[in-house]
Structure formats: C-alpha cells, structure tokens
Amino acid sequence: MDALMLSGSRRKSVGLAYLLLTFFGLFGLHRLYLGRSLSGAGMAAITLLSIPLIWSGLGLLGFVTTGTWALADALLIPSMARETNQAMPALA
C-alpha cells in the first residue's frame, strides 16, 4: 500500500506543469519539473542573461526566444508529462 502511494506522489501532474509554465515559463521551471533539466536550465540561463541586456537587441532576442519556446511548450506539456511518467520505474 505504501509503495502505491509513493508511486502516485512521484507522478508528474500536467496541471502543475501548466501552472509553472504560466508563472515561470520564461525560466523553464515547467521543464525542470518534468525532468528536462538541461533544456530547463538553458531557458533560465537565456532569460537571466537577457535581463541586463534588455535595452540592446540581444536582450530582446533572448526574451523572444524563450517566449516562443514557452508557447511551444504549452502544446507539448501533456506529451512530456506522459513520457516522464512512463519512464518512472514502477514500485512493487
């Protein structure tokens, strides 16, 4: 019984992923939550580097890049969550 409860608590929620996308999408927290740590860190790095460069073209380009990426992720979150949940080992 405990193994079943633990397994259920480790599954990734599509709803929570969308919530993270809504509030922290440019920082890639939804990707970190769904186990995509390298691309999530990449989104965060681009966004953080773009902040001091906001008045230059590079800063704007960074925000457009991560914004477009986050919008595309809005369509991809259900499949990313499914892949992550299927890859989790079942506890017996």
Rank of each mutant, 00 (worst) to 15 (best):
L19D: 02
L58C: 01
A87Q: 04
S7K: 07
D73A: 10
A90D: 13
I46Q: 06
A74N: 05
I51A: 15
S39E: 15
M5V: 12
G35K: 02
V64Q: 07
F63G: 02
G67S: 14
A41L: 15
L91E: 06
Y33K: 06
M5P: 09
I51L: 14
S50Q: 03
L32H: 02
G42Q: 01
L49E: 00
T68S: 15
A90I: 08
S9P: 09
I77L: 12
T84D: 10
L53R: 08
N85H: 00
L75M: 13
S56D: 10
L61S: 05
L49W: 09
F63Y: 15
R36E: 07
G40W: 02
M88C: 08
M88W: 11
A90L: 14
L20Y: 03
L38Y: 09
S37D: 12
L26F: 11
T66R: 03
A70D: 06
L20P: 08
G35R: 03
I51E: 15
P52N: 07
V64C: 14
M5I: 15
S79P: 08
L26N: 12
L60S: 08
Y33A: 05
S39C: 10
E83K: 05
S7I: 01
I51N: 11
G62E: 12
F23K: 04
S13G: 02
F27Q: 11
A92F: 09
A74H: 01
G42C: 05
I77N: 02
L34R: 01
